[in-house]
Design a protein around this nucleic acid. Structure first.
Lengths: 207, 207, 207, 207
DNA sequence: CATGAATGAGCCTTCATTCAT
DNA sequence: CATGAATGAAGGCTCATTCAT
């Protein structure tokens, strides 16, 4: 019996994804049960399987969907940047912002994902690699331009990502005000990366 | 029938911890089974429970034991450092080294731990906090001394830790030569942290 | 939205029965899903229940309809047979022919039916009993006439049916030419039954 | 907690097989639940999986074990038969006897097996093929010797098997006295197969 | 101390059936 | 009549944990 949706317009699928995000974020991949997700979306257990082939795929789609949105946002923001430094800085800002806007998904991607299936981890790895690539390109370009010594750009990109990840987790855990953090993180990363000059961006970076 | 231990002197407990590290590292917390751990230690399943109250506790002890060893090593290395910068640099080096020496435990602490129980995550968080504290103290001191702008030292410490974590994971995954990476990571972090002068340490940092 | 029927005149019900026969034949009673049957008939799942009270009943009707057609055919062919032997032989031929004409239904009745519900098995048993009865009557009559020793005619009829069943299944599986098989089966059964003389029927039996 | 076995000597595995045979025989493959089998063997559900990898495999082993015993018995009985006819007759008798001795397994192999998985059906088919082969060899030999017209020996063997199967099912259902049936079936089959002379065997066959 | 067979709660997943549209 | 999304009971299977030996 197809019970009418409480909500006006959004679909069952969205309800389920929302509920899934909440449950996965709170309990982690394994402790989360399909039953609870379904309950959170106010549907029967079986309904979950009308929209997702499995719990694993649901988790995977949640991650993919979000991370791809991040990538889109990052690429958008980078467009037309006047310099490598700005491009890099904007990428960082875009990532931070995206994650901040979605607490549950941030928790899932940053913390819980590693506890999931191997398949899932690989899937996430593939997407993450794209972001790493963008950052690595910038860093390679910057090194080329003499802003920093030559070196393993990929490793550097990972370092940047790692720092951002931890910053976000820190915010998630400590509920620190994002604005203050933002400045810190950007300064930290720009410094780490060789003191690239980005004076004109957002103004406040120039310490 | 108490089967004679293969090894000369170490105890059952150590066998089990070793086996547990291997199994947890390979499969992650959830996919690891007590049966496989016991098998790896050449003991019966029940024997596992003679040495650990539960799978969860076993995992916890594994993490705690290792991370505390890291802390000890870090504190040791910091003793008698001529400056904040050196103290900080030495801390970073100590951490990197410790994790590199124990691939399985590194994998567990850095990657698999987040997939475990909430209890376990909190336990790990508590220990990690001590390391963060050390780094944060250094960074606060450095800021005090004018080496870098004042700011949220704890956040900065987390950034440092995040970068290190990712560097190690990168090494774990890509099997990069550690030595090259080491230089990169140290330079990255020292740059990030304000260009602290550490010329005399290890020599090779001066780009 | 009542989608127009593809076929010219036959009803939804027939479409469903046809689709059901195909699906049941391919997957067996349990592995067959109502959804797939409906899909095969190009109808919505719910529509299935407009024509059948349940999956079980659908299967039952499929069997009953077909087997009753077999009975009708058998009775028809027996009419006016010059002797018991001919009557018997004609019955056998009729059964073989009917099953051969409907591969799907043959598969269902001969092979898949036994995997179904108890209720269904009983239902099939009841119908089958009618065919057994005809054969048993012939055999009893033949014994009466001295063509074969007295004995359990019902058992003999079952033996005949069993042999026919297996012959058909053999054909179904091995895709043997039916014509050759036909001779074998008839000879086998007539021999088994006491060498009843049926020279004039179909001609080719006389070895 | 390993509860002591009630029975004196037989193993858990046997208990489970016995219980499984009973449950499968009564309900068929699909309607049978592992829970009920376990209950029948007075063990917990999980215990079932200590002895069988799956419900499907359990069913498969049940069938295989029994049918192979049948084959062994048949081969044994055939040894040293003075003629093809006797060899054939003994085979039939051996099969009938084996099935009669194990009602549950007979029900499973003869009736319920076709409702099971495709994998299982193939497995059964493979074993059955061996029995068919033996019979086919006899029939080919008999044809060679001129006792019956040349023809498709494999088909004939299937006919024989089909008749036997149905006879057994008939007995299973009607609870007829086996002794009377035995004579009928043997006479039926020997007649079917060309009136092979087996006077000396069991004496009573000579009609 | 050691063993390992046994336990049983718990979870993912399927699918016949219903009913609001 | 037709639709097909929704339901939810039911069952196979896993594995941390226990305990009689």
């Amino acid at each position: 019996m197809p019970r009418a949706r409480t909500d006006g317009q959004a679909g069952r699928r969205e309800d389920l994804l929302r509920a899934a995000a909440a449950v996965f974020a709170q309990h982690g991949y394994h402790a989360a049960t399909v039953a609870e997700i379904a309950k959170g979306a106010q549907v029967a257990t079986g309904t979950f399987y009308l929209y997702f082939p499995s719990k694993e795929q649901c988790f995977g789609q949640l991650i993919a969907r979000f991370y791809e949105k991040v990538l889109v946002e990052v690429r958008e923001r980078r467009r037309g940047a006047p310099s490598v430094a700005v491009k890099f800085d904007r990428s960082v800002q875009a990532v931070l912002q995206c994650f901040r806007e979605e607490r549950d998904l941030a928790e899932i991607v940053l913390v819980q994902a590693s506890g999931a299936t191997k398949v899932l981890q690989e899937r996430l790895g593939l997407i993450e690699a794209q972001l790493v690539q963008l950052l690595a390109d910038d860093l390679a370009e910057a090194a080329e331009a003499g802003f920093m010594p030559q070196g393993d750009a990929a490793l550097r990109a990972h370092l940047v990502l790692g720092a951002m990840r931890e910053a976000l987790v820190y915010e998630l855990r400590e509920a620190t005000g994002p604005q203050a953090a933002d400045q810190e993180v950007r300064r930290f990363l720009l410094g780490a990366v060789g003191g690239l000059p980005t004076r004109q961006e957002g103004g406040r970076i120039s310490s």
